[in-house]
Design a protein around this nucleic acid. Sequence first.
DNA 1: CAACCAGACTAACAACTGTTAGTTTGAATT
DNA 2: AATTCAAACTAACAGTTGTTAGTCTGGTTG
Lengths: 190, 190
Amino acid sequence: MSTEVTRRDEIINTATKLFKQKGYSAVTMRDLAKAMGIKAASLYNHIDSKQDILKAIIISIAEEFTQGMDLIKKSEQTTIEKLNLIVELHVNITSNNACGMASLNNDWMHLEDQLEHYLELRKNYEQDFIDIIKTGISSNEIIKTNPEVIMFSILSTLRSLYLWIPKKEEVVIKDLTQNLSDVLINGINK
Amino acid sequence: MSTEVTRRDEIINTATKLFKQKGYSAVTMRDLAKAMGIKAASLYNHIDSKQDILKAIIISIAEEFTQGMDLIKKSEQTTIEKLNLIVELHVNITSNNACGMASLNNDWMHLEDQLEHYLELRKNYEQDFIDIIKTGISSNEIIKTNPEVIMFSILSTLRSLYLWIPKKEEVVIKDLTQNLSDVLINGINK
DNA sequence: CAACCAGACTAACAACTGTTAGTTTGAATT
DNA sequence: AATTCAAACTAACAGTTGTTAGTCTGGTTG
């Protein structure tokens, strides 16, 4: 079934938590093995390499973002509504995999074969984001400010969610999307 | 004189750049030596240890923030004005030492002796920040939203400046403070 | 000119790194 | 009861890690 959790998945989940705490480079295969309660060599019955783990963590999330953005891009919504959907996309992905987001943000540069692929996905995501903002400025929905500043500001906050969401209870996360959209879009000035 | 650049400073500056690119753990003393055009062992004529370098990078910046916040806290200004000053503080420190900010953000957990000290400084900084926001809500200057969400949102953007500022020209940075304050405080909704 | 010394060097260390090869185990299947 | 096999193990590897000890060099100072 699709809900089956393999030993490989357990290893990747454990690695994800360790990578969040210390970063990819500072986590050794022996650290990971100890956290799993086995010896380092045993890990290799389930994974190809340390790099294999990083790839599994990062690429799947990056593709999730691409997929989400594609839907938003194509949807017939106002710019403000699209921005709300982007906030929601980040909150959802991050609350499902906060530790994975840490690797995505901090360890992408340690990707080897897949580095180029990752950079391509990120570049396209940011381009789509900027296009949405530019459309919003043209249609007079958004203040006429440098679109890069706007994207940078919103995206920085959304990319940092992984640091913050684990400290919140389940219920609060439901409110978070609305709360964040408010602050990011309408500002805090009264 | 105070403007003298010692060999130690050169090493720390070079290390700072490398740490930004790959993170503290992934940079070896041999990498650093090669970037300096010398052998690894020669580094130890100028520094005590690898950890010594990290300490020098992070603690000085963290204390700069503490100092800046102390001034803002004590100043007799409106909340909005204080928030503008915080934005300015981050832009100034980051544009002077963008690479150091990368270590501050990403490698603080690799501090050993100084970890506790760093965490104390950060805790106090965030407490001061939250207090300013709470005062602004009480005095009706700021919308009544969760102060943590507001701080988190602003601080995430300011902490990510190091990724962004190096891509901008000198002149643009002067505008950046105003631009960012606008977006963060007044929002983007028209 | 002799003495000094900052700052480079070579050589080496013990510990740690990711990974491989080959072996054992114990539960499920025939 | 015999076979199979996933998944653990031990042992070892070649290379890398931060760091130390001791040495050489070339310019400055007495």
